[in-house]
Structures are given as C-alpha cells and as structure tokens.
C-alpha cells in the first residue's frame, strides 16, 4: 500500500515536471510518433507488392505491429528512462541515493519517474490496434479482451526484465548503457510474425529469447481467439525472465561498492 503511495507521488512529480518542460514533451512525443509511422509505412509499402507475409494479411500485420508498439510504449512510459539512468547512476555513484531510501531498491529505481510522452503515444498504438481489428471485422468477447490485456502485461514484465538485466550489467562492466540501447534492436524482431522465423533464427528468437512470443501471443489471441498453449508459454516466460532479472539485480547489488568521493 505504501508502495502505491510512493508510486503515485512519483507520477505526480513527473507530470509537474512535464508541464515545466512542455517543448521537451512535445518533441519526444513527436519522435515516437514518427518512428511508429515509419514502421507502419514499411508494412503498407510491403503489402502494396504482396498479399501475404508468412500467412499474415495486411491488417493482421498492422495488428501485430500495433501490439508490439503498445507494449513498447508502456515500457518506455513507465520504466525506460529510470533503467537507462540506473546504469549511469551505478557508474557515477549516485545510485547510493536509491539504497538510502526505505524501500525495495529495485522498486525505488524503476518507478522514480514516468514519461508522459510515451504514455500518450500508447493511446496512438491502441488506436492502431483497434483500427486494424475493425478493418478485420473482429469482435473479440470480454474474455478475449481480458486475455489480451493480461498478455500485454506479461509482455511489459518481459521487456522490463530484459531492461533490468542489461542495466544490471553495469555492476560488472562499464559498457552497460550501450547494452541497454541494444534492447531496441532486439525488439525489432517482435514486429515480425512467428511463422517467418525458420531454422536457427527460430531457435534463437522464438525459443531462447522472448522477443517474438511477446507480441505474437497477444496478437493471435485477438485474431484467432484464446489459445491456452500460447498463454501458458508467455506466462512462464514472463515469470522466468522476471526471476532471473531480480536475481541478477540482487547479485549486482552485492558487488556495488559506490564511487570514491
């Protein structure tokens, strides 16, 4: 309960801060909007030349891309800048500040602020998903929608875990923030349909790394109804990655020796 109050306080602080730097907010919202449009344009151009990619029609693909965007916007809005700054703070020693706070360090680090621009754009991503569903004539029931929502939540947990793990590497090496940046490249794969992965790519990106299932599972729930196998898979993957992330973070914490000053 007190954690919720802390989180609400940081949310309030972030909104006040955004109101102070309105131009910044506008600029970054535009940046995300531009990148989202670029990805949608890629889909549009490809489908000008073919009717199906790995068995997915144009609007099915847009639904997939929209779902991937939705998860990524939430991650950007809630956690990205906190975890990006975490690796910087570990190196500079400012990380002490979080350890001194009376709460779980990971919680304190991960919820320090929100990025309202990412959260605003999540509505755009949601709009893309709804538009695609409308064009496909989908009428998902309440249960399907609930499953979709839960799967998005699992997706956020998976992204969060990957970010925590990459940022935690800074406890051991100094190249941590470039590894955090690498996260973007990794999740480019989540805009692709699972059936497109064959051979070694199938093993690496579908089975070993969670980047494909994270977007494909919720998207196919909307498209083809609830599939228990996908749901269990996604849930297990989310749990496993979160556990590993917390473990790595805590091991790193033991190594943390602050900075000399």
């Amino acid at each position: 309960m007190s954690y919720l109050r802390i989180w609400l306080a940081s949310a309030r602080y972030s909104i006040v801060r955004t109101l102070m730097f309105r131009f910044d907010f506008f600029l970054w919202a535009m940046v995300e909007l531009f990148w989202m449009s670029v990805n949608l344009l890629l889909v549009t151009v490809i489908y000008d030349h073919t009717a199906s990619v790995a068995g997915w029609s144009k609007y099915e693909m847009i639904l997939l891309v929209g779902t991937a965007m939705l998860i990524q916007r939430y991650v950007m809005g809630f956690f990205w800048s906190n975890l990006f700054e975490m690796s910087r703070n570990i190196r500079s020693g400012t990380f002490d500040f979080f350890l001194a706070q009376p709460g779980n360090p990971l919680f304190m680090v991960a919820t320090r602020k929100l990025d309202p621009d990412g959260l605003c754009n999540s509505f755009v991503a949601l709009g893309v998903v709804i538009y695609a569903a409308h064009r496909l004539g989908l009428h998902p029931g309440a249960a399907d929608l609930a499953a979709y929502g839960l799967m998005i939540l699992c997706g956020i947990i998976i992204h969060f875990s990957v970010l925590v793990m990459s940022a935690s590497l800074t406890f051991w090496t100094t190249g941590g923030d470039s590894i955090v940046t690498s996260y973007f490249s990794l999740f480019e794969f989540s805009r692709l349909p699972r059936a497109a992965f064959k051979g070694a790519a199938n093993v690496i990106f579908v089975w070993l790394l969670p980047v494909v299932v994270v977007s494909n599972a919720p998207a196919s729930t909307l498209l083809h109804g609830f599939q228990p196998s996908y749901a269990v898979w996604l849930f297990a993957v989310a749990l496993a990655w979160l556990a590993v992330a917390i473990f790595v973070f805590n091991r790193g914490l033991r190594r943390y020796a602050s900075a000399s000053s």
Binding site: I46, H49, T50, V53, A54, F189, L192, A196, K198, A201
Partner: peptide
Amino acid sequence: FQLVVVFILWGAVFSGTDRV
C-alpha cells in the same frame, strides 16, 4: 543484427511472390 531482421522479413515477403 539488422541484417538478420532484413533476411527474416524479406525472406517472408518473398515466400508468397517471386518479384517485389
């Protein structure tokens, strides 16, 4: 890495058609 994305995406695109 990007090249891998290109291989997967365009490989899938060309699986349905010979020429784009």
